[in-house]
Design a protein around this nucleic acid. Structure first.
Length: 420
DNA sequence: TTCGTTACGGTTGAG
DNA sequence: TGCTCAACCGTAACG
């Protein structure tokens, strides 16, 4: 058991139900000194971790109950999840068919890929007076980009400025008034800096560089001969330079693709739900993804029975079967849903509100009327105190690693309980 | 009372 | 390794 503390005091494990103490809403305060962290309790008495998705099991239950005809407001009360969250999850499910949260974190894939940059260069070379918006239109009309990944006009302008250079510069080959060096210089290369035309003394030129039309510079290293780097001083990057590896979108060099980590077939895109972009690459060959601690997972590994799927409910005296049973089974059995299965907390994490008219009657649901017990006050859980049950240091969270606040709960064998 | 919406404080992860 | 930024999260409050 755990000592009870005042409502306004940070509490390590267990606490009085906010339903009994309406003034106690947030359990968030964190003390770096005692290295203890806390989840939060919402106004309904449900436990949540700020910034993190609800456990999949709870999301699934929301969908189940909704499909059984239970109103969102009742679901909200029963599961102690804010109605806004219930509304959001139901809306997402109706829209996408997925119960899973969206992809969190990461960066949006760049639209200015090397191929796009190259195309922009081509357009600019062929028509130095072309406007950025015209380039944008051509990227679309030439099917180099679609409407979802076409760079903005400002991005194109930036590319023109940063990667192609000032076309108004008299020495820029893209300048319409550019005078080819071949017309200034005869075919004999200058032997000393003082003998070269002035432009060759410019920092942007070196002895490897030749103007367009004289591509095969004899004193250039073989790898630079005929290359844009050597031929066009304003071309600061070759495609390979930009890519950092050979292009794989061109025929003939396909064999190099698999040598790049981002293009091997050991990577796939994780299931993503709810539109947006896909950016979570998951190594397929990894046998199991390390589950997120914040997802309150693996309760079953410590002696707590796995949650039983809710298949029927009694709603106003009428028993209803869950149409989601098949989906539940699919979720639990899907090879790609290791994390989903691991994140199923016991049903009793969220006790029914006393006034609920709908109640669950499966074996798991029999746990529902039990007293409210916070996630981390359940057997097998205690709050992060720096050590796990075996004495090993707990994995620090992101913010702990950065010296900031620590959040989340870590699975240990310590048994604590607290009834609200 | 119900529910859609949104500000807010938070986490996450690629770049 | 640490930072930035834009995605996401659930809650609480509003209408």
């Amino acid at each position: 058991s755990v000592d009870m503390q005042t409502a306004t005091q940070s509490q390590a494990v267990g606490f009085a139900s906010p339903l009994q103490n309406p003034g106690m809403v947030s359990m968030m305060p964190t003390s770096a000194a005692n290295n203890q962290t806390f989840g939060e309790v919402n106004q309904l008495g449900g436990v949540f971790v700020n910034g993190r998705p609800l456990p999949n099991a709870l999301r699934l239950r929301i969908i189940e109950l909704a499909q059984l005809g239970i109103r969102p407001c009742d679901i909200s009360r029963q599961l102690r999840v804010s109605h806004g969250c219930v509304s959001k999850i139901l809306a997402r499910y109706n829209e996408t068919g997925s119960i899973l949260p969206g992809a969190i974190g990461g960066s949006k894939p760049r639209v200015t890929t090397p191929g796009v940059v190259n195309a922009i260069k081509d357009y600019k070379v062929r028509d130095p007076g072309i406007f950025a918006w015209e380039i944008r239109d051509r990227l679309l009309s030439d099917a180099i980009c679609d409407k979802y990944n076409v760079p903005s006009v400002s991005s194109i302008s930036r590319i023109l400025r940063n990667k192609i250079g000032n076309v108004l510069h008299p020495n820029n080959p893209l300048n319409p008034n550019y005078v080819p060096i071949s017309s200034i210089e005869n075919s004999t290369p200058p032997q000393t800096p003082s003998m070269r035309p002035a432009m060759y003394n410019s920092p942007i030129y070196n002895h490897y560089m030749v103007p367009p039309g004289k591509p095969n510079m004899p004193n250039a290293p073989p790898q630079l001969r005929n290359s844009p780097v050597a031929c066009h001083p304003f071309y600061s990057h070759s495609v390979t330079e930009i890519l950092g590896f050979p292009r794989f979108d061109q025929p003939g060099i396909q064999g190099t693709v698999s040598n790049h980590p981002m293009t091997t077939d050991t990577l796939t895109v994780a299931p993503h739900n709810g539109g947006g972009y896909h950016h979570q690459l998951v190594p397929v060959s990894v046998p199991s993804v390390i589950p997120k601690l914040e997802e309150w997972n693996n309760m079953t590994a410590y002696g707590v029975p796995p949650p039983t799927q809710v298949t029927t409910v009694h709603l106003n005296g009428v028993e209803k079967s869950s149409p989601l049973s098949r989906d539940v089974t699919s979720l639990q059995q899907s090879p790609s849903s290791e994390e989903n299965r691991a994140s199923h907390p016991p049903t009793c994490l969220y006790a029914s509100a006393p006034t609920n008219t709908a109640y669950v009657t499966s074996s798991a649901a029999n746990q529902y009327p039990q007293p409210y017990i916070p996630t981390y006050a359940q057997p097998g859980w205690h709050q992060m105190n720096g050590m796990d049950a075996t004495g090993n240091p707990l994995r620090p969270t992101h913010h702990a690693q950065n010296g900031g606040l620590q959040h989340g709960y870590h699975k240990t064998a310590v048994t604590t309980s607290q009834q609200g």
